[in-house]
Amino acid sequence: MGVQTAQESQAISQSEKKFASEVTTGGLNTSQFQDNRPNTSLIRKMQESANGSIQAKQTAQLQEITQGNSSPTVQLKTEITHKTRPFTYPHLGNNVTEPVGAEMKAYLDPTDIVVGSATGAPQLDLLHSVQAVGHTMVRGHLLNHDLGGFGVEENLYPITQGANNRHKTNVENPVGDALNTAHGAANNEGVYYTVKVNPIQNTSAGLMANTSTFVCEAYQLTNMNANSVGTKGNLILKANIESTPGGANSSNAVDKSGAGLIAGVPKVITPGWGHGHRAGRELNWDAYVAAGKINTIEGWSTTKQVLVGLGIGTATILGLAGYFYYNPDKMPGFLSNLMSVGAIAVEELKNEL
């Protein structure tokens, strides 16, 4: 993922605008998820195929997300994307591999809230394996829990306690302050924020012997509305947070903006964004993923654009998202078929289940 430079176009690409205009939970009354066409039953079949209880669970979660919002406007402004990499570590005499967060991109609209969570069960065995070496390590959020980031594998990477503290002081607090300022301005502004782990380590031995770096950038967003995630504006910060478990200094913060590191900004939580006592995958994670507000499935953004272009109903798209979240290996074949035969691919998948 590259971030546009000052010399490049400041407008978000047309494809991202189109993706941002598609239907999700933000601002929706739950009655708007009704689709009276025959393929509406697909949401039930797909979700039951993925997980026997997922339908009832997601319905409750979607109601919680939209509770209290009576606006009929269909919106998608806040949008969070995660990428992962496999990480291998020793556990109970065996090598275990699980995903860690590698990259995060977020368009944050202060009025389109995503409530994140603290660390819980995810990556706990991984953390214990690196802590056993004798270093003070933590599971660092790529996207802070009070900025819509969940304590899940997709959003966590093991770093030193010092690096985590620097990330909070020099990056997360300024980004949170910028989001809160945009909320107060109430003029369709927000924050574009990215974190990429580069270099990234893929084994516990490599992690403990080398430096991992959170490459962080944040910009103001303007002109956010129901049809666009906005236009990238002024730079907020560019900073690298280095985690070196075996070094004399376990952490370092490097300014990349040319204006100096931001420090001394107190933690400010934008109204409604506080994670409370939530941890791990608690409550809304599945619902946000199914709604497309949090993206973790390779190829889903393109697939969703094609489905919308074909006129596939909202309820069916939500069902597809839930199905492919639990069956990501099915995505490439479905997308290929979708591009070949259009809406027939949806009916063919329905018949397979």
Rank of each mutant, 00 (worst) to 15 (best):
K267M: 02
N284P: 01
A287F: 02
R278P: 01
G264R: 05
P266G: 02
V289L: 05
W300L: 10
R278I: 09
V289T: 08
P271D: 00
G292Y: 02
G280R: 14
T296L: 14
E282I: 00
N284E: 10
A287V: 00
I297S: 04
Y288N: 14
W300C: 01
N284I: 06
G292L: 11
I297T: 13
H277K: 15
L307H: 09
Q305F: 06
V308H: 09
E282N: 12
T296S: 10
G280N: 12
S301M: 12
Q305W: 01
V289P: 06
R281H: 10
T302G: 09
H275C: 07
Y288D: 08
H277R: 13
V265K: 07
G280C: 12
P271M: 01
S301G: 00
K304N: 15
T296R: 14
E282S: 12
A291D: 13
L310K: 08
A287R: 05
W285P: 06
H275I: 05
T302D: 14
I269K: 10
H277G: 10
K267D: 14
L283D: 11
G299E: 00
A279S: 13
G309Q: 10
P266I: 07
H277L: 09
E298Y: 04
N284S: 07
R278N: 02
T302F: 00
I297W: 13
T303F: 02
T303R: 00
W285R: 06
G292D: 07
G299W: 04
T270G: 01
G274W: 06
G292K: 11
W300N: 04
N284T: 10
V268D: 03
S301P: 01
K293N: 15
G264N: 04
V308T: 13
K293A: 07
G274K: 09
P266F: 03
G264D: 02
A290W: 09
V306K: 13
T302Q: 14
W273G: 04
K267Y: 08
S301V: 12
T302P: 12
E282P: 04
K267R: 01
G276P: 09
I269Y: 03
G276D: 00
W285H: 12
K267S: 08
V268G: 03
G274N: 14
V268P: 10
W285Y: 13
V289R: 08
A279K: 15
N295E: 15
P266N: 05
A291N: 07
V265M: 03
R281N: 15
E282K: 00
A291R: 02
V306Y: 00
T302E: 15
L283Q: 13
V265H: 02
S301D: 08
W285E: 04
G272Y: 08
I297C: 09
W273P: 04
H275L: 06
T302K: 11
G280Q: 12
T296Q: 12
W285F: 15
K304G: 05
A287Y: 05
H277C: 12
G292N: 04
G264M: 03
L307W: 01
E282Y: 05
P271I: 08
Y288T: 02
N284F: 11
